[in-house]
């Protein structure tokens, strides 16, 4: 064996030894991974926990108090006082029909919401101001008398219908005189919802403010 052959042989042996060692170290990594997954019983996603998520998972548990306890109760849902559209025989006020009956009609209605939610109008007691527009008044009375609200409020409610109005609201509803129904529990808030059942009139044409009844 010449000197150069000896050198090459020795280099090959060295390379083989380094190669075996590299494989051994790589094997160690594989074994360590297997140890993490199989032997320690950890899930795949639990092995590599990014540091930022680790903070999130370490939540401080709620602490019990010794002076007393506040037990979370049921959620209180607010009640919406609005028209019960599922009530029997409820009739909408057809705005187009009203216009066809009397396009200059101007009618004010004073109605009473009964404890059961029905809308009561008494023409003989002067609840309808329809001077000069009796047909329109009767049409409005017919529809409004069929309206039924959810029984959360009761009292006076005023409606002002101004058919020829341009620029201002065609219908104004005054619900400020309504009071909570006494049967509604005090903790429940009663909010106003849809207070009318009028078809053929844009919602923007209906306003909620005070109405003068005279």
């Amino acid at each position: 064996m010449t000197h150069s052959e000896k050198k090459t042989f020795s280099r090959n042996i060295k390379l083989t030894i380094y190669g075996i060692l590299t494989v051994l170290v790589a094997g160690l990594f594989v074994v360590s991974y297997l140890f993490l997954t199989r032997f320690s019983g950890l899930e795949e996603e639990d092995i590599h926990i990014p540091p930022f998520t680790k903070i999130d998972t370490l939540k401080i548990p709620p602490r019990p108090g010794i002076q007393g306890v506040v037990i979370s109760g049921p959620v209180i849902t607010d009640l919406i006082f609005d028209i019960n559209l599922k009530a029997a025989d409820i009739q909408p006020l057809d705005w187009n029909k009203l216009v066809s009956i009397d396009r200059t009609a101007e009618v004010t209605v004073r109605a009473r919401v009964a404890a059961d939610g029905r809308l009561i109008i008494k023409r003989d007691q002067g609840d309808i101001l329809d001077r000069g527009h009796p047909d329109a008044g009767r049409e409005i009375e017919k529809s409004l008398s069929s309206w039924v609200y959810f029984p959360y409020k009761e009292g006076l409610i005023l409606f002002y219908f101004n058919v020829p109005s341009k620029g201002t609201k065609k219908v104004i509803i005054d619900a400020t005189k309504l009071k909570r129904n006494k049967k509604v529990p005090e903790k429940k808030e009663v909010l106003n919802g849809l207070l009318h059942y009028i078809r053929g009139l844009d919602q923007s044409e209906i306003g909620y403010s005070s109405v003068t009844f005279e």
């Binding site: 160690l28 074994v31 360590s32 140890f35 993490l36 032997f39 320690s40 019983g41 950890l42 639990d46 092995i47 998972t57 370490l58 401080i60 548990p61 709620p62 602490r63 019990p64 108090g65 010794i66 002076q67 007393g68 306890v69 506040v70 037990i71 979370s72």
Partner: peptide, 29 residues
Amino acid sequence: FLVTSLVAQLTQQEQKLSIPTPENKPGRA
């Protein structure tokens, strides 16, 4: 690797362990 995997496992178990200490006020439940 043996030690770190063991520590990782313990950390996971500790995360599941909830030992809240009481506080001197009304608590919520």
